[in-house]
Structures are given as C-alpha cells and as structure tokens.
C-alpha cells in the first residue's frame, strides 16, 4: 500500500505540474507549486517508511516549513513587480504571466 500511495502522489505531482505549465496566471502556477510542495513532503515521509529510514521525516518537516515560506516570498516578489508595472502603465490588465 505504501508503494501505491507513492504512485498516487507522483501522479498528483504530475497533475500539479501540468497546471503549473498550463496555468494562465502567476497565481495558478504558485498554487501548483504549493501543491507539489505538500506532495513532496508526503513523498519524503512515505519514502522514509519504504526505505526504513525515519530520518527522512526531519527533511519532510523542514521542507514543509520552506514550502510555506517560499510560496509567500515568491508571492511578495510578484506582487511588488505587479505594483511596479501598474505604476508604469495605468491600465493594468489581469495578472497574466
């Protein structure tokens, strides 16, 4: 069952990557990134169990922290860039990337 769950997570990562490639706006891509991060965290935990190496859990924990902070940091960067661009051109369209 561990292997099956790992496979399902990999498929989910694939779907999220598809959204990251397709997604019309920056925020779609970021949402996909955050989903990939959650899945990676679970994958690390599962791999730790598959290999019998519980040290992987620490990496998963750190990955989870970095995932949240990373998404918010990238978000902040894009928001700043968007507001700078909006200042340059008054008619701001949707946040198309």
């Amino acid at each position: 069952m561990l292997a099956a769950a790992t496979l399902a997570l990999l498929v989910t990562v694939g779907l999220a990557l598809m959204r990251a490639a397709l997604g019309p706006t920056v925020f779609d891509r970021l949402q996909a990134c955050s989903t990939v991060g959650t899945c990676a965290m679970l994958l690390l935990a599962l791999l730790g169990f598959l290999d019998g190496r519980p040290e992987f859990l620490d990496i998963a924990l750190v990955y989870g922290l970095l995932n949240v902070i990373g998404v918010i940091a990238v978000l902040k960067f894009f928001l700043q860039r968007d507001s700078n661009e909006a200042a340059n051109r008054p008619s701001s369209e949707d946040a198309q990337s």
């Binding site: 706006t25 925020f27 924990l61 918010i72 928001l79």
Partner: peptide
C-alpha cells in the same frame, strides 16, 4: 514527528492559501 508535520500543514497551509487568494484579488484577478 508525523503529528508535527500534520500540525504544520494544518496551521501553515491556510495562511499560504489566504495569502495567495488575497494577492490574486489585489492584483485584479
């Protein structure tokens, strides 16, 4: 440790989701 990971997801992921939604709305989406 697994419980800690769960707690981390429960506390942090809504914050990130809220930040994303708010940023999207602010940027005019």
């Amino acid at each position: 440790k697994l419980a800690m990971i769960g707690l981390l997801i429960l506390f942090a992921s809504p914050t990130a989701t809220h930040a994303l939604a708010k940023a999207a709305l602010l940027s005019g989406l």
